[in-house]
């Protein structure tokens, strides 16, 4: 038993070292670790924060970035009820068709529709943004090392002046946390970019925290269900394993080993 535990611990330790080395390999500057409400075994999202984050996203980010895995019906997950979702969807037009005349037409969006893309396609997006396609944001929090910490650091990591000796390309902005430090996205948030419906003061920091939370939610909408289920499953397994150990002891007590 002792040996087994030691082996298991050693294996876990070695794997951790591995995983760390492999994920660290791809990154530039390590973003500062933030405290997020959804971290830890019991972490959950803050619905009010997610709704504020959605407000920032749809007002600011959505002008350039798509969100291909967000359907209006998903907004239930950040605490909107059916009528609110219908009202939000009704603010948007989506393409549908063909109609009986064989033509495509636009209509107001329904909860089952996906959030409309700001550009017709990637090429159009690139053309409108100086050649750089604004990446889709639905998985951003999972698609970068340190996920939410990186997003937070990036959004607050702009510097007015590039450090001495750095030659900035045309139309690029210096960002401390972007891997090449030269990012095509201009600083997106200045403070008071939105007027929060819940009265929270829309400072840059607040907006960044909120939109980061929203981006993490859309990347991992299953997180709360996953952790809640995980707790039950692990507790069950610990009890079962303890019982199995007791049975094992009892059975093996009969022989010399």
């Amino acid at each position: 038993m002792r040996k087994f535990a030691l082996t298991a611990i050693a294996a876990a330790f070695a794997l951790t070292a591995f995983a760390n080395t492999s994920s660290k390999a791809a990154e530039g500057v390590v973003p500062p670790a933030m405290e997020w409400s959804w971290q830890g075994l019991f972490g959950t999202y803050d619905r009010a924060q997610l709704q504020r984050g959605f407000q920032v996203f749809k007002t600011v980010c959505a002008t350039c970035h798509s969100m291909r895995y967000l359907a209006f019906r998903n907004l239930e997950g950040i605490g909107f009820n059916e009528d609110q979702i219908k009202a939000i969807a009704a603010e948007y037009e989506v393409q549908d068709g063909p109609n009986d005349d064989g033509e495509m037409f636009t209509r107001t969006a329904k909860p089952s529709d996906h959030f409309p893309h700001p550009f017709a396609n990637d090429k159009a997006a690139a053309a409108a943004n100086g050649g750089a396609t604004p990446p889709d944001l639905s998985l951003m929090a999972k698609a970068r090392p340190h996920g939410p910490d990186y997003i937070h650091a990036l959004l607050t990591g702009y510097e007015e002046e590039a450090p001495a000796g750095v030659e900035m390309a045309d139309g690029k902005y210096y960002n401390h946390y972007f891997p090449s430090h030269q990012i095509s996205m201009p600083p997106p948030l200045y403070g008071n970019d939105v007027e929060y419906t819940d009265g929270t003061e829309a400072t840059v920091d607040q907006e960044v925290l909120d939109v980061t939370a929203f981006l993490n939610w859309i990347a991992e909408p299953e997180l709360e269900a996953r952790k809640a289920m995980g707790m039950k499953v692990l507790l069950f397994l610990i009890v079962l394993t303890a019982m199995l150990y007791a049975v094992k002891r009892k059975i093996w007590a009969k022989i010399e080993h």
Partner: peptide, 21 residues
């Protein structure tokens, strides 16, 4: 098999929990 005829409570309970799981 010495223990097959006297399946005690512990073994039964463990089996039940395992099957339910």
């Amino acid at each position: 098999n010495p223990d097959e005829n006297r399946r005690d409570f512990l073994t039964l309970a463990t089996t039940a929990v395992g099957v339910v799981g």
